[in-house]
Amino acid sequence: MKKYICPICGFTYNESVGIEEEKIKKGTKWKDMPSDWVCPLCSTKRVDFLEEAIDVALNEKVPFSEEGEASTLRKLSIKEMSALCSNLSKGCEKQYRNEEADLFKQLSEYFKNKGDFTKDASFKDLSNLIQKDLDTNYKNAKNVITKSGDRGALRALVWGEKATNILSSVIKRYDKKKNELLENTNIYVCEICGFVYIGDEAPKICPVCKVPNMKIVQVKRR
């Protein structure tokens, strides 16, 4: 018996379990599923599902670092520094260190408003970068990080790749339907993992990171 995974939201079809609600009996082979069957969570087509790979053996635990390790390999760009500082601000908030959180936020804003602004940009430009992430960057990163046994980094990749798949699908849908896609409905972003959802109401839980929808915020039209 095999399992098949939705590349967008991670829904898993298990042949030995089936899907009771859809009257798909346990033991139903993937190849015998209805051809028009789609993912019950996110409507991805059956042909896009991936067979589950067997997990590799447990990796060695990654050691904690001693003080003073060289922190990066290259200088971060101004925009990366902005993202780093906004995340450190959130980190301070979680530790109830409000003063530090404010200071990191100020730094993040400073970097955000600084430096290289592109003059024009299109969804096509975005789509090209997204495609490169999906075709190359995530695959390379997965190889390297799976070997290293760094579970935290692997977690970030798994969620990031799912969210990026969704970004790709959102832009493709926009390309086809243009403004009609959003005209009479809403758009939401999960504040924890970056999952984007278009629909009247946010899903109850985020299909990528499973956070309840109090963390899924609506992006208003301005």
């Binding site: 758009i187 993992c193 992006v219 301005r222």
Partner: peptide, 22 residues
């Protein structure tokens, strides 16, 4: 509106990988 949502999502994705980079 769509671009705003994409910018928020990408900020979160960047934050997450930077956090995991040490």
């Amino acid at each position: 509106q769509l671009a705003q949502a994409l910018s928020i999502s990408n900020r979160l994705l960047a934050e997450d990988v930077l956090r995991e980079a040490g």
